[in-house]
Amino acid sequence: MLENDQLRHTKTIIISSATSEDKQRCSDLGVASYVTKPVVQSEFLETILNAMVSPDDIVDIDPPNDVEQPDVALRVLMVEDGYVNQRVASGLLERMGHQVQVAGDGKLGVEAWRDGQFDVILMDWQMPVMDGREATQQIRREEASTGNHIPIIAMTAAAMKGDRERCLEAGMDDYISKPIDPKELAMVLRRHAPDDSPAATEASKEASTDDATVQPNAEADGEVTPDPQPDYEVIDIEHARNRMRGCNDAFLTEIAKVLREEAAQRVKEIEDALAASDVKVVTRGAHTLKGAAANFGAKPVVELAEQIERLGKADDLAPVPDLLESLKQQVARLDVELEAFVNRQIDP
């Protein structure tokens, strides 16, 4: 569509009152995406982020030497509303050799499950429109008449007392915490692989021998140590590299860009919900921000977001305004450091 070489890799998003024929024409022309009028701000932001970090654009990925390859490739439905976690988890699953389809909330997840053929569902707990509990219960109700049962694994940026129990009571089969650890993810997928797959047999062996998360040792594995990074006060680049094993800093840079956008959006979401005394949205926004920031080991942001989430769950918003002001300051610092990291990769 774009003949100028300097614009060849520029993403194009069409905004129009598009018909189905217009949609097909945009696809034929190589348009990255299209948005129909009237434009919804949150959906438009998601469209932009999806265009920015398309998997097809991440071409300089290191060989997945330390990402475990599965005995069998699974068809995974990931139901997750956080943009950063979508990118990180789907990238990790794809490097493991699995097929991944992403749904942005529980309602879309249920619809995707109805229309597709999947071996397992990774289900976030707190989402807009329909949360993970409601989506799981809906799937279980519909399965009751068929006798089928798809494994549903809860994903939540939480280590809160009772979270695992609540997930299992909702009809989920297992639980994995965010940020996702590749070793833990590989193990839980093996545990719930189809009964006739080699992965299912291996799962029982691993359950008795691998009861702890194993962090990679770059020197022991003979890996080349990346160039040292500047001293950051909020983000932890080595933590991010460990969390996203199997990719290099080109992918990490793209995730950093998305995190900058999402962190700002979640803070605004919390602020608006607080003004409206909407406890549910305050809690969900803090929960999502906590999980996204944890991928970069941003402890000051994670800790404040977790405090706000806890208060939301306790239906106590009185202390939140002061915490929100502190959170804004830490997110501003996070943004500065992420920008510095991105710029360093572009112009080392």
Rank of each mutant, 00 (worst) to 15 (best):
C26G: 11
L327F: 03
M244V: 06
L311D: 04
I139Q: 09
I180T: 02
V267N: 00
M1Q: 11
D115H: 08
P179E: 06
G246N: 07
D210N: 12
R87V: 15
D119C: 11
S20H: 12
R344I: 04
G91Q: 13
E3K: 14
N65M: 05
H287C: 10
E325Q: 10
V102F: 09
L74D: 03
G109Q: 01
D249W: 01
P230R: 00
K161A: 15
L122I: 12
N217G: 08
I255R: 00
A193T: 03
N295T: 06
R344A: 10
G104R: 09
R140P: 08
P300K: 02
T283N: 02
Y232H: 06
I235E: 08
H192D: 07
V59T: 14
L122M: 14
N343R: 13
A135F: 07
E306I: 07
D5F: 10
A103K: 04
G162Q: 05
K299M: 13
G297E: 00
I176L: 15
K290L: 09
D115L: 14
D66K: 03
P226H: 00
M155V: 01
L45H: 05
A218K: 10
V267F: 00
D211C: 08
L338F: 06
S177H: 03
Q69A: 15
E233I: 02
E233A: 13
D119M: 10
S54M: 07
T156M: 04
Q101D: 12
E94P: 06
R87Q: 15
A170N: 02
A218H: 13
E219M: 15
T10A: 15
R133P: 00
D231K: 11
E143N: 09
T146V: 02
G91R: 14
C167F: 06
L74S: 05
V281S: 09
A293S: 14
A73H: 02
Q329L: 14
N242A: 11
S16G: 14
D57R: 03
Q86F: 13
Q99F: 12
D71S: 12
V302C: 08
V102Q: 10
D278C: 01
G82Q: 03
G171M: 03
P151K: 12
S17F: 02
L168S: 09
G97W: 03
F44W: 08
A212E: 14
